[in-house]
Amino acid sequence: MALNEEHRDEWFRILGGYPDDEKPDPEDRLAVETSCSGFLGNMWTRATMPEVQGVSLAELELVFIQFYLGRPDPFAAAMLAAMTELADAPGGRRAAVKALERLEKLGVSPPSWYGEDMKLGECWKAGDVYGDQLTFFCAFHAPSGDQALSFTVDYSEYHFDMVVDCDATDDVDRLLALHRDRNGKTPDRLFQPVEADPAEVFAGTRRSLDDWDLFCVEGDARRLAPRFLMLRELWRARLRQFPQVEPEEVRQPTDDELSLFASGFLSHMLGKTMLEERHFEAIRELCWFHGVNGPKVSPTRAYVFLERWMPAKYAPDDPVVEAVRDLFIPFLRWTASATDLDPAAWPYLKFKAERYLGEFPGWSSKDPDVARFPRPRSL
């Protein structure tokens, strides 16, 4: 669907409805960029959902620029200055530069921070010991003032990487202090901030910005976390300063790897349980799923395996389902030991797994639509 006058008028109404008393000081770069990023996040949801609007984000960025070009005042100049950095399309960034030049001819100067380089500084990461979640913190430096951004990403080899929290501030120490305090209270599950390589930050967040999980929000981008939508374009713009590395693809276990994994667990179980055919099939399912991207067990993997993977392949009365119930905790315990998971992290994993098993199987029939593996990629 092409951009038409109705779309343009709708966004002019939305942009024009910004209350004057809520507009940030044009000289406050972070506040202006956050405000601009918020509008772009809203536009992205519309561009993502064809049934809502169906026009491209690049087209909507030009509508944004047209709107502020028609309102020659310091706040409009500040929003256009932000667009020279935040617009996703290079053409949008160039158009914002030209719009600022036109405002200058009308006597409206850009903010003092316009044209400054916002340079990448220190990076850190914190998260859980299982690898299910990481928070990245990055400091940026400029003459007009420093900035700090954080992104918390949930990882899943089965679905998508999801941004579940984010923040922007001029005080990176505040962000780090919050996580040092919180993570320090549960050292069995969480580790405190440590230095991170910028390439790791790029790889750890890049996919989550585009491959938002249709399953988790039932296909509606408007249901994503509001703070993610507010800061999405700001983070994307800052990522241009990072090493542009390719995130690793999901790697399924080879036949040899699967055989080695299963043989190890089988040897562990010999003499402990009378194994039947259903158990052997259950072991294959357990080892295959937990062997994606290398053997690993975690609360997220446990949840997805029991609540998503099994319902996609089996009816609840299938003998393999009961075999999984028999073997699940022993399998997690053996794999945790074999993969050198910190012993202090085992009790929480066991607690979560037993909680999931309490309602397993919780489905009425096989549902192939529940499972999508390998997950599709838009990159």
Rank of each mutant, 00 (worst) to 15 (best):
A225D: 15
T34F: 02
L231T: 00
A315D: 15
P247R: 07
P19L: 14
Y130P: 00
S259H: 14
Q53V: 10
P311L: 00
A58E: 14
V324A: 03
S259M: 13
H159I: 13
L80C: 10
L15G: 00
D220L: 11
A99E: 04
L341K: 02
I14C: 06
W124D: 00
F151I: 14
W363C: 02
F202V: 06
E200V: 11
F136L: 10
P90S: 11
G115S: 08
A148Q: 07
R223W: 12
R102Y: 09
H279E: 08
Q147Y: 06
M79F: 06
G127Q: 02
Q147H: 11
P74Y: 08
S156A: 14
K366N: 03
V194Y: 02
D20W: 11
Q133H: 07
V52P: 04
S150P: 04
M230K: 13
Q244N: 12
S144H: 02
Y18G: 09
Q252E: 15
S378V: 15
V32H: 05
A139C: 11
R13E: 14
D128S: 01
S37L: 01
L103D: 05
P26A: 06
L357H: 03
S259C: 11
Q192W: 00
K272F: 00
T205K: 02
L306W: 03
L62P: 00
N4F: 08
A78R: 04
G115L: 08
W288H: 14
L270M: 07
C287F: 08
D146A: 11
L175P: 06
H268D: 12
P347T: 02
F215C: 10
N293C: 13
A87W: 03
A221P: 07
L106A: 14
R232Q: 12
W309T: 11
D28Y: 01
A315E: 06
E27Y: 00
V217T: 15
E359G: 09
K296N: 15
L178C: 09
P330G: 07
S364C: 02
I14A: 10
A196C: 04
Q244V: 09
T45H: 02
A196V: 08
D317H: 10
S56M: 12
S378I: 15
R375N: 13
K125T: 14
R232A: 09
G291T: 12
